[in-house]
Structures are given as C-alpha cells and as structure tokens.
Simulated assay, not measured.
Amino acid sequence: MSSTRLWLGIVILIATAFLFYNVANAFLADSVEQIGLRSVVIALLSAFAGGIVARNGFVLPAIALWLALWTVTVYFLYAIAAPVDPNPLPGIARHNWAAFLGSGVATIVGAQLGQALVKKRASHPAAT
C-alpha cells in the first residue's frame, strides 16, 4: 500500500465532498429530507472517488475522516443549541441519526466499491 496514494485518496474524498456539497447547495432546495439523502449520496460518491485513487487500504481512513467530520458537526450543533436547551444532544441525535448512519454506511460501501473497481480493472488487462 502506497502512503502517497492513501493521502491522495483522502484529499480526493475531501475535495469531491466539498465540490458536491457546494453544487448541491447551489441547485437543490434545502428540505430536511433532502439534506439527509444528499449527505448519503455525497458520502458514497466521495468515498468511491477516494477509493479509486487510493486503490487499497482506504476504508479505515475514510471511516476515520467520516467520524472526525461528524464529531465536529455534532460539536458545533451542540454549541449552537446549548444556550437555549440544557440538554441538546437527544434532539441533535433525533434530527441527524439517518444522515449519520446513512453516510457512515455509504462511506464504507463507496470506499469498498472504488477499491473493487480498481482491482477488477487490474485483473482484466485491456484488450488490444
């Protein structure tokens, strides 16, 4: 496993997620249902792109990045809600559980699919 490819895969995951979120925010409405679904689709596509670049060993770094991003998200939501709600964590969990679990599963599946695609192409040489 090349650490350069792994780091490049992480950079690609972050860059594609940033790009997809900005495109989605520019063109799609912001309903609660769409935001959850959008999170899942973007996690899947970004992890897939990162998995293609990294080629192998990408699932754990992708999950670590996903967990770090959700940790920061929950922290900021807590910081926003804490002044008006003495116990905001149950409400945060109630409103974000589907996006949290869905994007986690999508990250795992996307990273594995990206790696599998590269392995399949490597095992089948191009016809000439």
Results as ranks from 00 to 15, higher is better:
Asn96Cys: 09
Val118Thr: 12
Gly36Arg: 11
Ala26Thr: 03
Asn22Ile: 05
Ser103Gly: 06
Leu101Gln: 03
Ala49Asp: 07
His95Tyr: 12
Val72Gly: 02
Gln115Lys: 03
Arg94Phe: 06
Ile42Phe: 12
Thr73Arg: 15
Pro61Gly: 04
Phe76Gly: 01
Phe76Leu: 14
Pro83Lys: 00
Phe58Lys: 06
Val118Arg: 14
Pro61Thr: 01
Val72Ile: 13
Arg55Phe: 05
His124Thr: 09
Ala127Trp: 13
Gly50Asp: 03
Asn22Thr: 10
His95Arg: 14
Ala116Asp: 04
Ala106Asn: 09
Val40Gly: 02
Pro90Gln: 03
Tyr75Gly: 06
Ile63Met: 14
Ala116Asn: 04
Ala43Met: 07
Ser39Asp: 09
Val32Leu: 07
Trp66Asp: 02
Ala106Leu: 09
Ala106Val: 04
Gly110Leu: 12
Phe27Pro: 01
Pro125Asp: 08
Val11Ile: 12
Ala24Arg: 04
Phe76Gln: 04
Val41Asp: 02
Leu44Ser: 04
Leu28Met: 09
Ala29Pro: 11
Tyr75Ser: 11
Ala47Lys: 05
Gly51Asp: 06
Leu44Glu: 06
Asn22Ser: 15
Val11Ala: 15
Asn96Leu: 15
Val40Phe: 08
Ala79Ser: 08
Pro61Ser: 02
Ala29Ile: 02
Gly102Val: 03
Leu19Trp: 12
Ala64Ser: 11
Phe48Trp: 15
